[in-house]
Amino acid sequence: MAQYLMSVLDEAGGRGTAEEMAAIDVFNEQMQADGHWVFAGGLASPGTATVVDGRDGEPVFTDGPYLESKEHIIGFWIIEAPHLDVALRLAAQGSKACNRRVELRPFLSE
């Protein structure tokens, strides 16, 4: 089994609507039932982020996200699948449920 990060991309910066949240719940339940679900979570807006650099002496805190972009990640799933074809299928369902594009990226194995 491999694990994949499935990031939800958002342009508008809005939270999910009630219908979207309901569809996401259904999707989550199905993933849990099928043994694909590892973790899922929504994120607060990028403006709430703090970049921290602790590499050298006193840590430096910077207000805001590490890069300004039109699109940002507003939530993610971590899923488990035997291979990419299954993960792609789940990603398509997840994208439909949350009504947004998702980026699917494998975790490093070993």
Binding site: P82, L84, V86, A87, R89, R105, P106, L108
Partner: peptide, 14 residues
């Protein structure tokens, strides 16, 4: 390799 693109015939529905 990294994304585990399967070495196989696709799922029937695909």
């Amino acid at each position: 390799k990294a994304a585990r693109i399967p070495y196989g015939v696709p799922l029937r529905e695909d």
